[in-house]
C-alpha cells in the first residue's frame, strides 16, 4: 500500500520545450518525480533551472511537450491551471511576501480566498504553521520588519497553508545572509522528512547530499544527468557535470 503510494509519479514532464522569442531556454526536458520524493536541481546560472520549475505551475508557459501534475494535464484550460496551482506551493528567491499585509494575513489570505476556509480556522492553521517554522511571535508584524531568513520561513508557511502536495523551491537561500541560510534549510529538511514532494533549485550541496533522493544537473536548457547524490559525488558521468561540481564544491 505505502509502496504503491510512494511509487506513484506525481510530476511527469515529457520532452518539455520552451522558447523566449528565438532563444530556446528548455530543450526536450523529461523528468518523472514520485510522490514524497525530494529532487534537487543544480546547474550553472542561465541553464534554465528556474524556467523549468516555473513551467510546472504555469508561471511560464511551455510550448512543446507534456506536463502532468498529480494526474492533471497542464493545458491552456484555466481550471486545470488553477487546480494545479492550488496543489503546488512555490517559494521564491526574493520571498515575494505581500508587504502591505501582516505575516498572519500573508498566510491566511489564500486559504480564506481560494479554499473558502473560515477566518478562525485559517488563523489557527497559520499559527500552527508559524510554530512549525519557528516564528510564532512575528505573526502581527509586517514582512519589512523581519530578517531575510524569517521572511523566507514566512513564505514557506504561506505556501504550506494551502496544503499543497508538491513544493517548488527556486533558490530559496540565495538572497540570504550566510548566517540565515541554515534556519531556512532546517525548515526545508523537516518538510522533506514529513514526506512532502519537493523540487528544489539550489546551490547548497550539503543540503543536496543529505536530503535529496535524486539530483538533476541542467546545462544550456537540457537535463544532462539525473542520479542519486552518491552517484553525483562519486562517479558523475558527463564532463560538464564534473566541471560544474568541481567549481562549486
Amino acid at each position: 500500500m505505502s509502496e504503491n503510494a510512494t511509487s506513484e509519479e506525481i510530476i511527469i514532464c515529457q520532452d518539455v520545450c520552451k522558447w523566449f522569442g528565438e532563444f530556446q531556454a528548455l530543450k526536450d526536458c523529461s523528468l518523472r518525480v514520485r510522490a514524497q520524493e525530494v529532487v534537487v536541481i543544480i546547474g550553472p546560472s542561465g541553464s534554465g533551472k528556474s524556467t523549468f520549475i516555473r513551467c510546472i505551475n504555469r508561471l511560464e508557459e511551455h510550448q512543446a511537450g507534456d506536463i502532468i501534475v498529480d494526474g492533471i494535464p497542464l493545458t491552456r484550460d484555466v481550471r486545470n491551471i488553477e487546480q494545479i496551482r492550488s496543489e503546488t506551493g512555490m517559494v521564491f528567491q526574493q520571498f515575494n511576501l505581500f508587504p502591505h499585509l501582516t505575516v498572519l494575513e500573508n498566510i491566511t489570505l489564500a486559504p480564506i480566498q481560494v479554499r473558502k476556509m473560515h477566518k478562525d480556522e485559517a488563523h489557527e492553521t497559520a499559527m500552527a504553521l508559524l510554530n512549525r517554522v519557528g516564528i510564532p511571535e512575528q505573526a502581527d508584524k509586517h514582512p519589512g520588519q523581519l530578517s531575510g531568513g524569517q521572511q523566507q520561513r514566512v513564505a514557506i508557511a504561506r505556501s504550506l497553508a494551502m496544503s499543497p502536495k508538491i513544493m517548488l523551491f527556486d533558490e530559496p537561500t540565495s538572497a540570504l545572509d550566510p548566517e540565515m541560510i541554515k534556519e531556512v534549510l532546517d525548515v526545508m529538511q523537516e518538510l522533506a522528512e514529513t514526506g512532502m514532494t519537493m523540487l528544489v533549485v539550489t546551490h547548497e550541496m550539503g543540503f543536496a547530499r543529505e536530503v535529496a533522493d535524486r539530483i538533476v544537473f541542467m546545462d544550456a536548457g537540457e537535463i544532462m544527468e539525473v542520479g542519486t547524490p552518491e552517484h553525483f559525488f562519486t562517479n558523475a558521468q558527463h564532463e560538464r557535470t564534473k566541471l560544474f561540481l568541481s567549481q562549486i564544491l
Binding site: 508561471l59 492550488s86 512555490m90 526574493q94 515575494n96 489564500a110 480566498q113 481560494v114 513564505a155
Partner: peptide
C-alpha cells in the same frame, strides 16, 4: 512582477 507571481502561485484568481 514577484507580487503577481506569488499570488498566482497561491492559486489566487
Amino acid at each position: 512582477r514577484g507580487q503577481y507571481e506569488a499570488a498566482q502561485a497561491l492559486g489566487l484568481s
